[in-house]
Computed example of a mutant assay.
Amino acid sequence: MLSIGDFAGLGWVSVRMLRHYDTIGLLRPAHVDPHSGYRWYTADQLSVLNRILALKDLGFTLHQVQAMIEEKLELGELRGMLRLRRAELAAQVDRDTARLALVDARLRLIETEGHMDTGDVILKKIPAIRVAELSATAAGYDHPTSITENLSPLYPRLMELMEQAGVPMTGSPIAYYRPAPTGPGDETITVHAAFPIGAAEVPGAGFDVVELPPIEAATALHQGPMSEAFRTGQKIATWIEENGYRPSGPGFAREVYLDCPPDEFDKWVTEMQVPLDGTGIATGKN
């Protein structure tokens, strides 16, 4: 048998923790000396300790861990629970990493306040564009991950439908946004994923065909992930104000994805187009 000190060392835990686990009935020693009260453990109990630590490190409370241990979960059940919890934690890490990147981007933006260079903002007259599109509803700009989660899946689905219908795309992917409130205080938006299609004939193909009207827009190239597009958006806003213009409608930018290497978001190149007063974003469908 192993002394409590040896068992703690082999299990990479403290003696104090083992005493606590004994007190709450989570992991009792195999033998307690009736005279000295000294605790002894068996090597087999290390597997139980490993399960406890794995469940605890994955965020379960000691009460939850105890219930799982007492239920004598089968190895397959435990493995499935751990994989599910691991996936949840990995998703949380991804969200926190994205949030940290967003905070860093906003800090960099704050550092440029008062001396923002707007020299690369260009005033353009953009002709009407006929596009195939799919749309979805997102929670709004207060929830940027909702926009990505709802917009991104539309493009591969739209490409699939266009291929099935024999409709070729004739230009870069486009995204645009419209308010979609369903009640007072609702700030949901409709996200539109679109591909230019020229004058191609389109049978009933499961997607909409929309005429994006001609616009006069303040435009600038955004380089990097779209989660940091607010940097370029603020630059355009500064230019608009400095030059006496006003945005049209809610001021949502139309986005034209010029270069989008898969999984290399820091290398993306996107033209952001903010329609100016007197122009619109989209008209009816046909």
Rank of each mutant, 00 (worst) to 15 (best):
Q223P: 01
E216T: 15
A253N: 11
E228N: 06
T219C: 15
R246L: 15
F265L: 00
F230H: 11
N243R: 04
N243V: 09
I240D: 03
P250T: 10
T238A: 05
T219I: 09
E228K: 01
I236C: 04
D263T: 09
E242S: 13
F252M: 08
S227V: 09
T270C: 08
E242P: 00
S248Q: 06
D259S: 14
P214W: 03
G244P: 10
T238C: 00
L221N: 05
E242T: 13
T232M: 07
A218V: 11
G244L: 11
P275V: 13
R231T: 15
S227C: 04
E264R: 10
T270G: 05
Y257C: 06
I240L: 06
I240F: 11
W239K: 02
I215L: 14
E271N: 08
P275K: 05
F265A: 01
T238P: 00
E264H: 10
Q273P: 02
E242R: 08
D277E: 14
W268S: 03
W268Y: 14
E271C: 06
S227Q: 08
P275L: 12
F265S: 02
C260K: 04
M272S: 09
I240A: 07
W268P: 00
A237I: 10
A218Y: 04
E264I: 06
S227D: 14
I240Y: 12
W239Q: 00
D277M: 07
A218P: 00
L276F: 11
Q234Y: 15
E242N: 11
N243M: 07
E242H: 05
A253E: 06
D266G: 08
T232G: 10
V256A: 09
T238S: 02
T232A: 10
Q273K: 00
L212G: 03
E264W: 00
Q223S: 13
E264Q: 12
D259E: 13
E242C: 05
G249D: 12
D263E: 07
E228I: 03
L221P: 02
I215S: 03
E255D: 13
P225T: 13
F230W: 01
L221W: 12
F230Y: 09
R231M: 11
D277N: 12
E216G: 04
Q273N: 04
E228P: 00
R254T: 14
K267W: 08
N243Y: 09
V269D: 01
E241T: 14
G249Q: 12
P262A: 12
S227T: 14
G249F: 13
I236G: 07
T270S: 09
G224W: 08
P262H: 07
G249V: 10
G251H: 08
I240P: 01
I236N: 01
T270M: 11
I215V: 15
F265T: 06
P250V: 14
M226D: 00
L258E: 11
I215Q: 04
T219G: 04
R231Q: 14
P213A: 12
I215F: 07
V256N: 01
E241C: 02
E271L: 06
W268Q: 05
S227G: 14
S227M: 14
F230C: 06
A229K: 11
E241W: 04
Q223I: 15
P275D: 06
P275I: 13
A218C: 01
E255W: 12
E264A: 12
K267G: 06
Y245P: 02
D263W: 03
P262W: 11
A217I: 08
R231G: 13
E242M: 09
K235I: 15
D277G: 04
